[in-house]
Computed example of a mutant assay.
Amino acid sequence: MITGSMVALVTPMDAQGNIDWDSLTKLVDFHLQNGTHAIVAVGTTGESATLDVEEHIAVIKHVVKQVAGKIPVIAGTGANSTREAVHLTKNAKEAGADACLLVTPYYNKPTQEGLYQHFKHIAEAVDIPQILYNVPGRTACDMLAETVIRLSTVKNIIGIKEATGDLERAKQILDGVSKEFVVLSGDDPTAVELILMGGKGNISVTANVAPREMADLCEAALKGDAETARAINEKLMPLHKDLFVEANPIPVKWALYDMGLMQEGIRLPLTWLSAKYHETVRNALRASGIRKI
């Protein structure tokens, strides 16, 4: 089962916006060494919206090859075109990904029936475990609990990343799906509470800079050790909050650069973190114990 702390991995780039393969290798090693339970390659935090199809597939292949089966690799393969999502999902399977993460179609605003048919079609087209991904704040498309419950019985659809931060919504889903269906948080501040309610883990932005801490947090919550999990979460709360002072992944890429783990690179239309927020993010790293000075 896919469970625990799953990093929504950034895609490192150079100053011209080209993929920095050496830094990608360094980041994957960083997670393998620090207890991350799974890697999500080319999701929202990986700038999936601005990588072309060839780059998208190349990043998945690179991560799969380097991980070499040590932990699961989940490939982001969602798109607002069902045909494109099928194409990406097929290629992720061929690359050796363990599962795929499929965001709700953005911009074109499908109905709930359209969402059901979209995800059902992909699941029937590609025989690989698939995780739904609901993040209406980014997509302008909200997949309601009843649609998730309906999709939970479709072969190959094994779970959902529920990123609304709405614990009542998460409870609705948990109450309506089988115990085998994997409900994951996609919201770092509320992940502990979702796991304690019966969720199986968290797809995390914070884990990019605090992999060991997020792994410990998820392990404690999965064991039902609420006191330990909440204590870790409280310490990490400055990061949960301040890694979103500008649109993700702008702040987290700057934080990784500040930590010496990647170059100063991001792809338009996203821009490098505004100077006025540098100390805000650096102070969050300090307050969370990630940066010592």
Rank of each mutant, 00 (worst) to 15 (best):
V59E: 14
Q130F: 06
Y116T: 06
S48R: 07
A85D: 08
A85L: 05
T50I: 12
A49D: 04
V67C: 10
R138P: 06
N108M: 09
P129N: 10
T147Y: 00
E84K: 14
T139W: 03
H118F: 14
V53R: 11
T89Y: 08
A95L: 07
G137L: 02
A123R: 06
K93C: 11
Y107I: 08
K90V: 05
N91P: 06
P136S: 10
N156K: 10
N134Q: 04
L101N: 02
V63N: 12
C141Q: 13
Q117P: 04
L51K: 06
K161E: 03
T50Q: 13
Y116F: 15
A75W: 08
G114T: 02
T44Y: 03
M143T: 02
V67Q: 09
K70G: 10
G137S: 15
A145F: 08
I160H: 03
A49E: 13
A92Q: 04
E146S: 11
V126F: 13
E124V: 06
I57V: 14
G76Q: 06
Q117S: 15
L132G: 10
Q130D: 08
E84S: 14
F119M: 00
A145Y: 07
A97Y: 01
G114V: 09
V64Q: 07
Q117D: 14
L102H: 10
V103K: 01
E54F: 11
C141H: 06
G114P: 03
I71A: 06
Y106R: 04
L88A: 13
A97N: 00
T111Q: 06
E146G: 04
T139G: 02
A97T: 09
L144P: 03
V64G: 13
N156M: 01
H56I: 07
K65Y: 11
A140Y: 13
I149G: 04
A99V: 00
L144S: 09
E94Q: 15
P72Y: 12
T111Y: 01
T50N: 12
V148Y: 01
I57G: 00
P110K: 01
Q117L: 14
G69Q: 14
P129F: 12
Q130Y: 09
E54Y: 13
P136D: 08
K155M: 10
V67P: 09
T104V: 15
T111I: 02
K120P: 14
Y107N: 09
V63D: 08
G76P: 00
I157A: 04
G137Q: 12
M143K: 03
N91K: 15
G76T: 03
L151A: 07
I158K: 10
K93Q: 14
G76H: 05
L115P: 01
P72L: 05
T89A: 03
P136C: 12
V59S: 05
G43N: 07
